[in-house]
Amino acid sequence: MNILLWHVHGSWTSAFVHGKHRYLVPVTPDRGPYGLGRARTYPWPDSVVEIRPGQLATAEIDLVVLQRPEEWELATSWLGRAVGRDLPVVYVEHNTPKGDVPNTRHPMADRDDVILAHVTHFNELFWDTGATRTRVIEHGIVAPTARYTGQLDRLAVVTNEPVRRQRITGTDLIPRFTPVAPLDVYGMGVAGLPEALGPPGQRVTAYDDPPQAAMHTEVARRRAYLHLCRWTSLGLSLIEAMAMGMPVIALATTEAVAAVPASAGVLDTRVQTLVDAAVWLIEEPAAARQLGDEARRAARTRYGLDRFLADWDELLEEAQCASR
């Protein structure tokens, strides 16, 4: 099957393109948000092919995967075909709803020409999608090669744009943890975070947009993984950390409650409980390793790549059959 999709979320796309299909990814000269092309910091298979917008009108496409509302019109324009009528389409919703939660209407609500795939059950529960057909295909990951050592008395955080997103990513909570141990923050748009935090930022080191494999190796050397997101979908970096064998300290919000079993870390809505957990794991490396072993088992059981790809193959086949 030839599948057209945009490169939007690097980790999710990395798992998706490990399937058995051919994946056409738009590329533009500026490699902007609608033409990123192939990933530069993730290893993708040769079945991912860059394609220029001008080539799409004559390209053989079997199905379109959309991830942003504006991609509907963009795909129709570039392809010269009506998405949802001439070509089957699946819309992937990665995010929690914004606005009038829990009454937020999804942009694809009440449509009969699309299947809406949520990446978590939490998202399906909270988005109002009306009569649109929905499925939940939980995340899958390409298993990291790095393994947890926890040799450094430091905490690891992986997040994107924490300065801009602030309360969403729990940036305001970071100073609660800096007295316990230094924090190393990895992700896109993390440059400037230490300065934005003021004096507590002296205990924070930011690593902006590192290559995935190198990041995994470094994250796995930290004692525990700190997940402070208040309102975000389940971050793949959290699952990847668990798969490496890292113990988790996390806010008990959104899908994290279902993803992290009690045997794999400490979850709570009381921040002081999480601070106390950080102290405990810094002081007790053996306890951290025990939690990490459980985290690894949980992540590899629930978020394995084979299950993820099998679920997607089933949905893609359903979408194709429904359009015939």
Rank of each mutant, 00 (worst) to 15 (best):
Q151G: 14
D153N: 12
L155Q: 06
A156G: 12
A156C: 13
A156T: 13
V158D: 06
T159M: 12
N160W: 08
E161D: 14
V163H: 02
V163G: 03
R164Y: 05
R167L: 10
R167G: 00
I168E: 15
I168K: 14
G170V: 10
I174D: 08
I174A: 04
P175K: 07
P175I: 08
P175H: 08
R176P: 03
T178F: 02
P179F: 05
P182I: 11
P182F: 00
V185I: 15
G187A: 13
M188L: 13
G189L: 01
G189E: 01
V190W: 00
A191G: 09
A191F: 00
E195T: 14
L197M: 09
G198H: 02
G198Y: 03
P199R: 06
P200I: 11
G201I: 09
Q202A: 15
Q202S: 13
Q202T: 13
Q202C: 04
R203V: 04
R203L: 13
T205C: 07
A206G: 12
Y207H: 15
D208M: 10
D208W: 11
D208S: 11
D208Q: 07
D209S: 13
P210T: 04
A213H: 06
A214G: 04
H216V: 02
T217D: 14
V219N: 01
A220D: 08
R223D: 07
R223N: 07
A224W: 03
Y225V: 08
L226S: 07
L226H: 04
L226V: 12
L226N: 10
H227T: 03
L228D: 01
L228P: 11
C229R: 12
C229W: 08
R230T: 12
W231M: 06
T232H: 13
T232L: 06
T232W: 03
T232G: 09
S233E: 02
S233V: 05
G235Q: 13
G235R: 01
L238R: 02
I239W: 00
E240K: 02
M242H: 07
M242Q: 10
A243R: 01
